[in-house]
Amino acid sequence: MRHGNKVNHLGRTDSHRKAMLANMASSLILHKRITTTLAKAKALRTYVEPLLTKSKNDTTHSRRVVFSKLQNKEVITVLFREVAEKIANRPGGYTRIIKLGNRLGDNASMALIELVDFNTVYGVEAKAEKKTTRRRGSSKAKKAAPAAEEVVAEEKVEEVTPEVAESNEEGTEEAK
């Protein structure tokens, strides 16, 4: 009987599931975000968040505990150097799951799981630029624009006029 065992088996054996979650956790730490199915993302969250908490305390014991789960030296160095600095002040909730929709092949619900502190989109608040023009003001702008064009045209005519006059004088002298 499975009383109290609430782990999602994900249709895999125990060893396969552990290896898959370790690989996904390594990819998440290296790339800061991965796309997977919603069920795997939820399982990965419960797997990786305790490892991230362990990385905040950089001791030999915590490194060995995390290495026993992930089995990848490069990932451990990235986790304890880069990731641990960013999440040092965060009390928990290191990952974010964003639902994406269904996959075309088998209609599985997909999700994006990412490390919260490494996201550039949500961290920066987007400032909405306020429109300064209104419908009423557009007619005034249209009336002001032709007046400006007339001034520019008059300046061009003044610049061209002396040259034209000189060429006309030379042309009349040659004719004589």
Rank of each mutant, 00 (worst) to 15 (best):
V7T: 13
H9Q: 10
G11C: 06
R12K: 15
R17E: 01
K18E: 09
A22C: 05
A22K: 02
N23S: 11
L28A: 05
I29E: 03
H31Q: 14
T35N: 10
T37R: 03
K40T: 12
K42F: 11
A43I: 08
T46W: 00
V48A: 13
E49D: 12
L51N: 03
L52Y: 05
L52F: 07
K54H: 10
K56V: 08
N57Q: 06
T60R: 02
V66A: 09
F67L: 12
Q71R: 07
K73H: 13
T77M: 09
L79H: 05
L79K: 04
R81M: 01
A84D: 01
P91C: 07
G92H: 02
G92D: 06
G93E: 02
Y94T: 03
I97D: 00
K99Q: 05
K99T: 12
R103Y: 07
R103E: 15
G105A: 08
D106K: 00
A111G: 09
L112R: 10
I113R: 01
I113N: 02
E114V: 01
V121W: 07
V121C: 00
V121I: 08
E125Y: 01
A126V: 11
A128I: 15
E129L: 12
E129I: 14
K130A: 15
K131S: 14
R136C: 11
G137C: 06
A141Q: 10
A144G: 06
A144D: 14
P146S: 11
A148L: 13
A148C: 04
E150C: 03
V151P: 03
A153H: 13
E154Q: 14
E154W: 06
E159T: 13
A165P: 02
E169T: 00
G171K: 10
E174K: 09
E174G: 00
A175I: 11
